[in-house]
């Protein structure tokens, strides 16, 4: 199994007189994998997303998507393979209606009209928005707009979807909608997924987590492995889940927790075992 995305010693800065935003970053993403990238604001995580589909090009190092090197010539090809959903629901809605917006990407890639008609239906169905075809964007909630953004990306049939803080501006209900949508999409389609987020509930569900700090890859591992490094995470300004914090305090207070817990259930099991041994 080859890597779907590969960063080889990538460094990037916006202008020559400015500091490096990314320094010598290397990592890979497998096909069908869900990778979460976390880091506080300014750690370089959004820059990574923009490098992956050629919205930015690195000054040093190389990036490969599906075996193709990302450069000026290949970007249009790359963008068919890598879809992106951004933070602000309003500023990525191009069409005057839902239907038009879903078609926008396909139109850009020159897909035949018959295929577009089919894919508008299927991708709206995939995000549960089939009844909203003729809706105008200002009649939709933030969460609904983001679902349309996901549908628009799905319609182009990419192999990777990047959600760049796509839930940051939504209320809890909107976030839930998006998480549910993503879960369904991941289940039904062969896709890699990269979520850039502050939301710990999203991070826990990922297969693997990449922690960025000051433009460098700081830690890489499963959510369990990453959250085990809680003190260090806190030092670089990141939050950890409630159970992680509690487990740490329990350890400090003299209990031996066998396995780093990720949810209430796991921590309760640990406590139960300890309790029955007493």
């Amino acid at each position: 199994m080859s890597h779907f995305i590969e960063f080889r010693n990538v460094s990037f800065r916006y202008r020559e007189d400015q500091p490096w935003v990314l320094v010598n970053v290397s990592f890979t993403v497998q096909a069908d994998e869900w990778l979460a990238i976390i880091g506080h604001n300014g750690s370089g995580k959004s820059t990574i997303a923009k490098l992956m589909n050629g919205l930015l090009l690195p000054q040093q190092g190389e990036i490969f998507v599906d075996g193709i090197a990302v450069n000026e010539e290949s970007i249009w090809d790359i963008r068919k393979r890598v879809g992106m959903v951004f933070q602000n629901p309003d500023n990525q809605f191009v069409g005057t209606t839902v239907r038009d917006d879903v078609a926008f990407g396909m139109e850009n890639h020159g897909l035949p009209r018959q295929l577009m008609l089919k894919r508008v239906q299927s991708s709206l169905a995939a995000v549960g928005m089939s009844d909203y075809q003729a809706h105008e964007p200002h009649r939709l909630s933030g969460g609904q707009k983001q679902r349309i953004a996901i549908a628009s990306v799905l319609a182009v049939a990419p192999q990777l979807i990047i959600l760049d803080e796509a839930t940051a501006m939504l209320d809890p209900k909107g976030r839930l909608e998006i998480m549910e949508t993503i879960r369904q999409v991941q289940e039904t389609q062969d896709l890699s997924l990269i979520t850039i987020t502050h939301d710990l509930k999203e991070v826990i569900k990922a297969d693997r987590v990449l922690v960025m700090n000051q433009g460098r890859t700081w830690l890489e591992g499963t959510p369990r492995e990453v959250f085990a490094a809680k003190d260090a995470l806190r030092d670089i300004g990141l939050d950890t889940p409630f159970v992680t914090k509690l487990a740490a305090e329990l350890t400090a207070a003299g209990l031996t927790i066998q396995r780093e817990p990720l949810n209430h259930q796991e921590l309760l099991e640990e406590l139960w075992t300890l309790h029955s041994k007493m």
Binding site: M84, F86, N91, Q92, V94, G105, N108, S152, V153, V156
Partner: peptide
């Protein structure tokens, strides 16, 4: 941001 999003969606 819109220009960025349009480009990301393959507009040329």
């Amino acid at each position: 941001e819109l220009a960025m999003a349009m480009e990301a969606r393959g507009y040329q």
